[in-house]
Amino acid sequence: MRLGIAYDRLRYEEKELFNAAQKSGYNPVMVYLGELTVDLTEGQRKLKETASVVLQRCVSHVRGLHVAAAFENVGVKTVNSYKVSSLCGDKMLTSLALAKAKVPTPRTLVTFSPEQTLNALDALGYPAVIKPVVGSWGRLVTRVRDREEAMSQIEAREAAGDSMNQVYYVQEFIKRPERDLRVIVAGDEIVASIYRYQPGGDWRTNVARGGRAETAKLSGGEMETIIRAAHAVGGGVLGVDAMEGPDGLVVHEVNGTVEFRGAASVSDTNIPNKIVQYAASLVKR
C-alpha cells in the first residue's frame, strides 16, 4: 500500500495526513504539483506506480480537478474523485445534486444578467445572499440588505469582468443563530462535527475568516441529513456545512477538499487518521 497525497501548497492538513499515513504504515508519497509532470501519452505506467490511492488535497480547485483526472485515467483511486470534486467546486452543481436528493437547502436562484439578478433578489426578499459559484473561504459571499446594496454588488461584479462572477448564485438568507455547522464525513461515517461561530463584525462563520470552533452534538435526524448530503455529491471525504434554520437543518455547502484545523483543535477524534483509514479502505492492502 502506498498512499499518495497530491497537493500544491502544504497546509497543516496535508502534514497531518502525511503523519497519520506514516503511523499506519501506508508509505505516504507526497505528490507536489509544483514538481509534477504528467506524461499523457507515455507516462501511464509511471503515474500508476506512484500510489495505490491518492488523497487529492490541492488548494486550487482547477489543479485538483486535473490531477484527479490524471490519476483516475490510469486506474488510481482518487479521494475525492474528479466527479465529486467538480460537483463540490461549483456551488450551483452542488445545489443541483442536493436538490435532486431532496436534501433541505436554502432556496437558491441562479441568474446570468444584472437585471435578472435584481428580479431574483426581489423575488427572494431582503436580506439575501449573493455568492460566486466558484470560490471558498467565504470570499465574495455577500449579504445584501436591500435593493440598493444589491445594485452596488452587481455593479462591482460586472466591473470586475470575470465571467465566473457573472453567474449569479442568489440565496435566501436563513435566520439562524450566530453559528453554523461544519461536519466532516468520510464515507458513511461522521468523523467530527463543530459549530462555527461568526467573529465580531462579520456575519460569515468561516474559520478562515476568524470563525470560532466548538464541538457540536448532532441529533439522529441531523446526522441523517448530513450523510444524505454527502451521498448526494457522490461521497468521499467531505465537509458538509449546514445551518439551523427555523424549520430544521438546511445544507448550504459541501466542501470537497475539507480543511480540518479548526475542527481538530476542539475534537477528540483523530481526524487525519480517520481520513487516511477511509482512503486505505478503498483499495486492497
Partner: peptide
C-alpha cells in the same frame, strides 16, 4: 520551500491566493 532530492532548499515566491483556492 522546494526541497531537492539531495536536501537542497530553494525558495520560490509564494503564489497569491487564486480565485479558485479554498476547500
Amino acid at each position: 520551500a522546494v526541497i531537492g532530492s539531495q536536501g537542497t532548499i530553494e525558495l520560490k515566491s509564494a503564489e497569491k491566493v487564486g480565485e479558485d483556492w479554498g476547500e
